[in-house]
Nucleic acid binder design. Structure first.
Lengths: 185, 185
DNA sequence: AAAAGCACAGTCCACTGTGTCATGTCGACA
DNA sequence: TGTCGACATGACACAGTGGACTGTGCTTTT
């Protein structure tokens, strides 16, 4: 019971230490001031395919960034529109975040869960689920290819788009081999 | 201001209405009673590659399932081990969940975020990040192939494993084409 | 045999992420 | 005039993540 083996240092880093969502908001604000509403749409368009974010979250993060002085609120517009702009601290924090090694990906695919417990499920129903998902992936792939054909604004957008295409191709290839795996006698 | 166009029905479904994480716990409990600790490890082994769950979450869901009567706590063991077993209601709820159409997947890949803002990042550093991730994906693919070679307990496990392999192959193919996309003049 | 270390087993908390309900504003247009 | 739809935000409950913390019992080291 003597001495507690912890000093409670609590190194909060004080600066930076952004989560990826907050960081991406700062990223978008480099293009000029924007409201939460606008940022939601920008984000969904530009990174929505591999980084989901919701209205609630955007407003919450903006408020937090404001409290930390990384963005500042401008004069409110009509319809209670509240624009924010990047501060110098925000710019610095974004730069620091961007230079840090990104973490590994997270995938959560409910279809795979259902499939994993597939022995307890009617075979036709399972196959139906897979067929439904197949059309979703086909549509997404078609959409990506269209986007690519239409031309990307820059190399980096093209690079992330290429990921989407490879991913969807992989999923479709998997679905093609699924019947053989499941039907084996 | 006249009549509000909503009846506030609040159809809570009363039964079932499980989240996928809770459902998978019920799924594992079909094999016999288990403690939270054991379930964490079972889950990480069997579905961890496409459905992440944490200690905190497992214990919280177990408590919730207990409150709802879908599992019941058995006599505590040594080290305050608390085993749970499936109730009939739990079995029914699991069956109902399994027969529902699974939702679409969620992917969150921080590397793609960094890449999307890549114009603001030193080229060598970005390439370094990609190289680091490449080795991760190579190792995962190798691990999956090994698992497959070692033989799967059942077709369904094999099917989910096949997904992992296709996915990792897709990511590696993407990484192979990345330099060409980014280097273009 | 005492000490140390480790796997087992669980709690608590802060933060992040998702989805729904609710509220109010402004312009178009019928 | 009214009502519809896009604009704009807030509140809240639930789900998910990760770290700090507390204890217990077995095994290995000294």
């Amino acid at each position: 019971m003597a001495h507690r083996p912890q000093w409670n240092v609590k190194r909060k880093n004080l600066m930076a230490d952004l989560n990826p969502t907050a960081a991406s908001l700062l990223g978008f604000l480099h293009a000029g001031e924007a409201s939460g509403y606008e940022l939601v749409h920008t984000a969904q368009q530009l990174i929505g395919d591999f980084w989901s974010l919701t209205r609630s979250q955007v407003y919450r993060e903006l408020a937090a960034l404001d409290r930390r002085g990384l963005v500042e609120a401008g004069p409110a517009g009509p319809r209670s529109r509240q624009p924010y702009r990047l501060t110098d601290e925000g710019r610095a924090a974004f730069g620091a975040w961007l230079a840090e090694p990104p973490g590994t990906e997270q995938i959560r695919y409910p279809l795979l869960l259902t499939l994993a417990f597939g022995s307890a499920l009617d075979r036709d129903r399972l196959m139906g689920f897979i067929a439904e998902h197949r059309t979703v992936h086909e549509k997404r792939l078609a959409g990506y290819r269209e986007q690519r054909a239409a031309g990307c604004p820059d190399r980096f957008t093209e690079a992330t788009l290429a990921f989407g295409i490879r991913y969807e191709e992989g999923v479709l290839a998997w679905m093609d081999e699924l019947p053989a795996i499941l039907e084996e006698r």
